[in-house]
């Protein structure tokens, strides 16, 4: 088994086998990340460039740690969001990257398709760390890894994704990923924040959270941004919370062993009560831990560690 592409741009285009390879590779990576000496030399001498056009401490630090555990040289290029507004194209950045001789580029960008644009310009492997509302494949993979670790499998599970689906790249990646792995995906949110025809992906759309939660094995809450209220997409946080917030009572609608997930950062008391966020069923902190292992697997595989079972034994 070998990856069939140079870049990780999204889960929509990934094959099931490739998803499995990444998740399987993350298992030994998690063991390494739990050692006292969290370092293996496999990517020694490789250069990984992180370009974040949006502030994201969580994802950036996760990638940096992953690179360090694998002994890669990792460089952060500070890229102001203002340069995007100014219309400074990603292609200008691409020229810089090529000059640096990077092996892998990790990019976070506020515009959909930016990672793809970069991928077509540079020889380095491009890892999409979030492009606008399009995809956030590494988050999707770490969510799948977390669920698989807890449930043993993804096939046949019911995954409920609740919140602002319209603006969520996490939702999109998880919809693609979980559906490919044979799970059912229920999505739920206000009609104003439900992208048109999303049901054509195979996800089932609900507007009552109770219906979406019924029998769910996994509950994935999305962060609601206050700016959306100003844009007229929902009337108030209070009403949002009342209609779409996850609280203790609603938690009982899901399966007794349902997992509670959130890509973070959590708005406690808005999309999820503090009590549920800290509930024993919540795996929000484990998502962060697993994020490093999954990104180690991704960096390893996309930096050249493709695989074949027998040939090299």
């Amino acid at each position: 088994m070998k990856l069939k592409r140079k870049d990780l741009l999204g889960l929509a285009g990934l094959e099931t086998q490739e998803i499995n390879l990444i998740l399987d590779t993350a298992v030994p990576m998690k063991e390494i990340a739990s050692r006292p000496v969290k370092k293996v030399p496999v990517l020694r001498g490789r250069t990984i460039v992180n370009i974040f056009y949006e502030p994201s401490t969580r994802t950036r630090v996760s990638f940096e740690l992953a690179a360090k555990h694998l002994s890669a040289d990792s460089i952060n290029i500070p890229a102001a969001a203002s340069s995007v507004v100014k219309g400074e194209s990603i292609k200008d950045t691409a020229r810089t990257i090529a000059a640096m001789g990077a092996d892998v580029v990790v990019i976070r960008h506020p515009l959909a398709g930016a990672a793809q644009l970069l991928a077509g310009t540079v020889e380095a492997a491009v890892i999409n760390a979030g492009d606008g509302a399009r995809e956030h494949p590494t988050q999707g993979l770490l969510d799948m890894f977390t669920v698989r670790e807890k449930k043993g499998t993804l096939a046949g599970l019911k995954v409920a994704i609740i919140g602002d689906i319209l603006h969520s790249r996490v939702a999109r990646s998880n919809i693609w990923g979980f559906l490919k792995m044979g799970a059912q995906v229920a999505i739920c949110g206000p009609a104003t924040m439900m992208p048109p025809e999303i049901n054509r992906t195979g996800a089932v759309v609900y507007h009552r959270i109770e219906d979406a939660l019924e029998g769910a094995d996994v509950i994935m809450m999305l962060r609601i941004q206050r700016e959306r209220q100003k844009a007229g997409l929902f009337p108030s946080l209070r009403e949002y919370s009342r209609l779409f917030g996850l609280n203790r009572e609603r938690l009982f609608l899901a399966k007794p062993d349902a997992l509670v997930m959130h890509p973070g950062p959590v708005n406690r008391g808005v999309e999820i009560t503090g009590e549920v966020a800290d509930h024993p069923r919540s795996v929000i902190n484990e998502q962060v831990t697993n994020g490093v292992a999954v990104r180690m697997a991704i960096l390893y595989l996309f930096a050249g560690g493709g695989t074949d079972d027998e040939a090299a034994d």
Binding site: D24, E31, V42, L70, G305, G306, D308, A312, D313
Partner: peptide, 23 residues
């Protein structure tokens, strides 16, 4: 022990061995 991540020939192999668990 899985030694894949310690090999010195990662760049020269066309096929990489599957990463296995160290335990």
């Amino acid at each position: 022990l899985d030694i894949t991540l310690y090999r010195d020939d990662l760049t020269t192999l066309s096929h990489q061995p599957l990463l296995r668990q160290t335990n």
